[in-house]
Structures are given as structure tokens and as C-alpha cells.
């Protein structure tokens, strides 16, 4: 029994030790990093962000010689974890992994505990996955985006589109489509993209503005039909799917994207070094295959990312306001 108890205590001890791994110490950019780095991921383990953040963290760990730990702080559509990250030490050992959600949040939440543009400094958009208009062929006869719009105009409110939840980019991409094409589609929110796809395949809903990542394999399997990609350029993952402009709805562009931010006030040398390391990691072979499978591209970095974030906040704000999307 004695040994059992000792083993139990040892286990407790090691578990505690891992929680207190990060303490504050004076920062010197020369020796950075000399202890593990934390990436605060504001979504639950296994969410969309994880699919990109975890391979990236693994690659950075290899490059930096220090562990890059993903700290999942899920809740409230990613705003809870963002609030926690905003108050983290700006010593270059905590970074924030945000997403398109954080540029939508300012217009749909009544109040937030952080300011995306003031509390964080952009490093890089590491992955951008375009949305794609997909329909269940058993429910919708349209063979092209034009036919779909014609049908929707002739039958207002008849077609339903699913989303991964209220205020997600799936939802707002749909609202953007409605506004651009002046059609009336019924929104059906789900608890995540998985259950939504299940119902799209089963024909409980007619169509969706899904992320290319989860749709690509269903498209290849022939269970759903893609009508247009909400992007400027075609994607090699589904090369024969026309862009929105080619299909006749110019300006319909929406991506689910994921980026890394530093906490505002982090030393510039460290930010630069992290930016360089991320750029290098994104060229690694292991990352390339993961990104390609998800139909993801690399996005703007540094100042370009700041401008991109600003325009995203504005654009999503207009759509959210027009469609009166709110979470309170």
C-alpha cells in the first residue's frame, strides 16, 4: 500500500509541475527562447484552429529547440480565450492563435473583454480556407450558381442553408451571398460544421457555404455538388470549381482563416524572430501536405495582416449589421 500511495503522490506532483511550468523572468531577446512558448488557442481541443495550430506548433518546436505548447481555452465563440490572452505577459512567451471569428466578434457581441486591434499585434495569417457553395444534388436541381440563384428568386424562403452556428463565417458568408444576389434563403444554425454536414448529406438542409477543408472529400465522393468557390482564385483541391466571379457573383469572397498574434508590447526583436520562424515552418513538407489536404493557403503577414484584419472587421461588420446578427 505504501508504494501505491507514493506513486500517487509522485503523479500529483508531476501534474502540478506541468501547470507551473511558465513563470515570469526578465526578457532578453538574444537568448529567446530559453523556456517553453505558449500559444493560447481560444477554441476547444479538436476545433478547426487545432488542425492548423498543432502541426505548426510541432514544426516550431523542432526549429526553436523549445516546446511550443498549445493552450486550449475554449468558450464563447473564441472570445473568452482572447480575453485571457490579452492579459498575458508580453515577454514573448505567450502568443495568441486567433481566427476569422475574432474579426466577426466585434460586430455581434454586445461587449468584449479585449480589443483585437489594440491588445494584439499581428504576426501572420498562417492559413486561409475559402468557403464553397455546396448543394445536396438530391434536393437542389441547379447545376450552376446561376440556376441556383434563379431558383431561389422564383421560390423565396424555400431553400435552406446550414451553418456551424450563429455568427460563424459559414453563417455570415450565407448572409453575404443573400445580400449580393438579393435572394431569400433560410438559415439553419448547427452546433459545429460536423453536424451540419451530416444533415446536408442526409438532405435535411438544401445547401451550405461550407469551408473547403471539410467539403473537399464529400465533393470528391460525389455526395454534394460544388457550385462556386468564394475566392478570387481557383483552388488546386477542387480545380474544376469556378470562382464566384466566374460563376457570376463578383465580390462574393469569404474565407475561414487562422492567424498568430503577439501580445501588444512584446519586444520587436522577438516578434520579428517569431515571424521569421513561422515563415520558415510554413515551408516545411509536413505542413505543406496538411495545408493542401484542407485546401488552405498562406495569408498576409505583419503590416499586411494588420490591414487585412481591419478590412475584415469592417466587411463582416456591414454584413452582420445588414442581417441583424447578434449574440447577447
Amino acid at each position: 500500500m505504501q508504494t501505491n500511495r507514493r506513486a500517487l503522490l509522485a503523479l500529483c506532483g508531476s501534474a502540478l509541475a506541468s501547470f507551473v511550468a511558465i513563470s515570469t523572468s526578465p526578457v532578453t531577446a538574444q537568448t529567446w527562447p530559453d523556456k517553453p512558448i505558449t500559444f493560447v488557442n481560444p477554441f476547444a481541443a479538436g476545433g478547426g484552429t487545432d488542425a492548423f495550430a498543432r502541426p505548426l506548433a510541432a514544426e516550431l518546436t523542432k526549429q526553436l529547440g523549445q516546446s511550443v505548447i498549445i493552450d486550449n481555452k475554449g468558450g464563447a465563440g473564441g472570445t473568452l480565450g482572447a480575453g485571457v490572452a490579452a492579459r498575458a505577459a508580453k515577454d514573448g512567451y505567450t502568443f495568441f492563435v486567433g481566427a476569422v471569428h475574432h474579426t466577426i466578434a466585434p460586430s455581434i457581441y454586445a461587449k468584449l473583454t479585449y480589443d483585437l486591434e489594440k491588445d494584439f499585434e499581428p504576426i501572420a495569417v498562417v492559413a486561409m480556407v475559402p468557403h464553397v457553395v455546396v448543394v445536396n444534388p438530391a434536393k437542389v436541381q441547379a447545376k450552376s450558381l446561376k440556376e441556383l440563384i434563379e431558383f431561389a428568386k422564383a421560390n423565396p424562403g424555400k431553400l435552406s442553408f446550414g451553418s456551424a452556428g450563429n455568427g460563424t463565417s459559414h453563417h455570415l458568408a450565407g448572409e453575404m451571398f443573400k445580400a449580393l444576389t438579393k435572394t431569400d434563403l433560410q438559415h439553419v444554425p448547427y452546433k459545429g460544421a460536423g453536424p451540419m454536414m451530416q444533415d446536408l448529406l442526409g438532405g435535411q438542409i438544401d445547401m451550405a457555404f461550407d469551408g473547403l477543408g471539410s467539403s473537399a472529400s464529400q465533393i470528391k465522393g460525389g455526395k454534394i455538388v460544388p457550385l462556386a468557390l468564394a475566392a478570387k482564385e481557383r483552388s488546386s483541391a477542387v480545380a474544376d470549381v469556378p470562382t464566384s466571379a466566374e460563376a457570376g457573383v463578383a465580390g462574393f469572397e469569404a474565407s475561414a482563416w487562422y492567424g498568430v498574434w503577439a501580445i501588444a508590447g512584446t519586444p520587436k526583436e522577438i516578434k520579428d524572430k517569431m515571424a521569421a520562424e513561422i515563415a520558415k515552418a510554413l515551408k516545411a513538407e509536413s505542413i505543406g501536405s496538411v495545408w493542401a489536404a484542407q485546401g488552405a493557403k498562406i495569408g498576409p503577414v505583419g503590416a499586411d495582416m494588420a490591414a487585412f484584419v481591419k478590412s475584415e472587421i469592417e466587411n463582416w461588420g456591414k454584413i452582420a449589421k445588414g442581417a441583424n446578427v447578434k449574440i447577447e
Binding site: A44, A45, G46, G47, D50, A51, R54, P55, G194, M197, Q198, L201, G213, A216, S217, Q218, K220, G221, G222, K223, S286, S289, V290, A292, A293, Q294
Partner: peptide
């Protein structure tokens, strides 16, 4: 399609391996 969060992670594991889960 994931039936629960654990299955979502398994799908993530397949993606990391360059396999697109699907039909």
C-alpha cells in the same frame, strides 16, 4: 464526419497524415 469531439480529433490526425477523411 465526426460523431463526437474525439472523432473530430481522429479526423484531425488523418489530415495531419495527408489523408482526407471521407467517403
Amino acid at each position: 464526419i465526426p460523431a463526437n469531439p474525439v472523432m473530430a480529433l481522429m479526423i484531425g490526425a488523418m489530415i495531419i497524415q495527408g489523408i482526407q477523411p471521407g467517403p
